[in-house]
Write a protein that binds this DNA or RNA. Sequence first.
RNA 1: GGGCGCUUAGCUCAGUUGGCUAGAGCGUCUGGUUUACACCCAGAAGGUCGGGGGUUCGACUCCCUCAGCGCCCACCA
Length: 875
Amino acid sequence: MDFEIEKAYEAKKYEDKIYKKWEESGAFTPEVDPSKKSFTISMPPPNATGVLHLGHAVMLALEDIMIRHHRMMGESALWIPGTDHASIATQNKVEQLIAKEGKTKYDLGRADFLKRVHEYVKDSQSTIRNQIRKMGSSCDWTRERYTLDKGLTDAVQEVFIKMYKDGLIYQGDRIVNWCPRCESTLANDEVEYKSLNDKLYWIKYGPFTLATTRPETKLGDTAVAVHPSDKRYKDMVGKKYMIPGVLGEFEVEVIADHTVDPEFGSGAVKVTPAHSFADFEMAQRNNIPAKSIIDEKGCMMDNCGKYAGMKTHECRKAIVDDMDKMGLIEKIEDYEHNLSICYRCETPVEPLISKQWFINVDKKVINHKGKKVSLKERSIQVIKEKEIEILPSKFNKTYFNWMENLHDWCISRQIWFGHRIPIFYCQECGEVITGKEKPEECTKCKSSKLKQDPDTLDTWFSSGLWTFSTLGWPEKTKELEYFHPTGVMETGYDILFFWVARMILMTTYVLGEIPFETVYLHGLIRDRNGDKMSKSKPETCIDPLEMIEKYGTDAVRLSLVIGSTPGNDMRLYEEKIAGYRNFVNKIWNAARFALMNVEKEDLEKEFEPGMVKSLADKWVLTELQKLIKEVDADMEKHHFSEAGTKIYDFIWSQYCDWYLEISKGEHKNPAVLIHVLRTTLKLLHPFVPYVTEKLWEYVGGEKLLISEKWPEYQKELVYTKEAGTMELIHEVISQIRSVRAELKVEPGKKIHAIIYAGKHTEDLEGKREAIMLLGRLEQLDIEEKGPKVDGAKAIFVKDTEIYLPLKDMLDTEKEAKRLKAEIENKEKFAKSLEGKLSNKGYLQNAAKEVIEKDKARLEDEKTNLQKLKSELEQL
RNA sequence: GGGCGCUUAGCUCAGUUGGCUAGAGCGUCUGGUUUACACCCAGAAGGUCGGGGGUUCGACUCCCUCAGCGCCCACCA
């Protein structure tokens, strides 16, 4: 066929146009159609601040593969995209921006500041949207959501109120992680730890000597704790002591608590309940009061005398100086320990007591199988009872461990950007009223002076509702009924706790059903050295968008999917992407070749088994069926890397290297050439959507490939016997090529070959042309059997003998050496097979097929051994 | 401190219920304008599957142990 397309595939030229076609075709927007199965993925919403990074890219690639596969399987495949407002992260970004203008959020005030944030979000949302498109993501833009949408805000308020009414949400004065820079609470898992070289101060403390890293908290001490069985302090427990301090004497009680380590320091610990989690808990257990001395800006409070107003680290220095003057410092040691820092801004976290909203995770409110269970228990159950499967399963344990140790979840944040807590306080009588809108008047005293709680909700509160809030809940939409629970939640293992666990917790409570059936956790993308990618190391840091520009989206997708297994990190570097670009180009050229070898009419005919002719046809079709079967199994098991690798190998090593090569001879069969091409394009489409869609324009029907049907395994196209014969022919050709290379026969030179093929004579005769073409022969004699050919190179493949009369090129000595080595090797192998086959245990226990295979192999080895030996003798 | 994982060719990694003279890509070496593709083709070299022990007819695969590396959780002043 006359066919004008360029030699190399230029991704850039086509991608955007193809994406537009897909989107306009409506393929991304599935119908609610109860006659079909539904398959849904809620896209993990990128932060509304972001630029696409490799983490997003791998997420998008994997999810798009699943969605495209399910769509081609005829299911209603819905992939909902969206963005997350990411309260703290976004607010921080904007604070940084206005800081450049020399302003703070207080200068702007709440309303104007939020206006700035919304503007900023709008901008970056459109950036990230386009970048998601760049990855070829076939998500449904008509259903795109944002966590601050009206509908989602509704869902958030509804859930809050439901939980409040169920008594799950309560307000309490509790010790919380406080970031003095963000001026907000942080959940436990929003705190990170950094190793720090610090000082350990040994201080004289009344009758005690004790060690501390934070001498400034002495101002808030209300007790000293020792281990209950520590004999040194036994008599002091329960007594009160006056302790000299920089602001005069103060009283502490000595308590016994099993959490104190008698080995550490002097075995006695000062207790500062208001500014240490461990101390807070100890104080609660022992009925000790707390005294707050650090405020929300990280400064010493008014009750700290001359230290009031100092930052904690300034105060530490001052207080140590003063204590030293009073002779209260015994010694100062170097000490390495972990400092807790804010995960968003790395500011050291200041534990302090504050009035916050919490979700009670232990209250039994969920009715499940006639029993009341807590949020925590239900969340553990759904995994234990395999309602949800986590891949890889090794994360089950991690998940249980985390859930079992879960404490009440602090959900209020002193951040301006986010969902306002739907709580109103009556300024007159103090009544607390919950509601979506500000009530006209107080339900109790009818006062109209009502004020909304100034705090916002933890960003994970809204993302915990993501799978169902995006489908319209609290409305009872048909989408919700049809598409929920979703099929797969695919995300990085680093947010298993942050997000996945919270979705499970929230959804099982709110809907009484699971949010998703399978959790697929991908690994982190690392640089070539196995380090975390970071923009501060530009030489190893990869920007997916730059790579798309350079190598095309398809290549980038493959480089992220092949070689990646769930839960395991993967290294990425540019050569890898270039390698997959080469593959994409290979597909392009395979199609180009096929098209050059068929006529227009060939493309119009429907393929049917009657069109199958040659041995090569039967072989390639058999291999193709095998491929379909294996790919189906792999996709089912979420083994995307394996599936991709198998298709890659089929196209390159089977279709191109053998079938297309053989098609260069007289065996050209357009029907099979095109059928195999079409089928592999379909199989490939989820992995490399662009190049396959482009090629489908040339070889496909009227429909876009994205909407085509996934190939089915066809038993009638499996020709086991013929395929086996073809393998033999491949082997014969390979051997001839190998000898040519070994004897340095000029590539252009055609040689003579004599083959004694025994029972395969007819088959080889049938493929005479292919053997001559690919072995570069000028003369080929095929006989059933015959005499040895003197001075010829001999090769034995199965029961076939090949002689290449290359007398002048043969080095007898070398040949003898090679034969000897091969004989030795084969004898060794045959011996091990014999040993195995005479082993009773083996014969009794091994599978029949395994034994049969070994027997056949032994036969082959034996005949070839004999031939090799006589060859050696005659040399 | 508690938990999880990794160690297979020079490099990066596959290897699914134990049955392989252990595979791929990149790199290396030899040689190549052949009805598509040099982003290519043909051929080749390269591994005692981290060490040791055990279970088994049989172990890269299961168990124990040692060593090295990594991650997560907790956090003690």
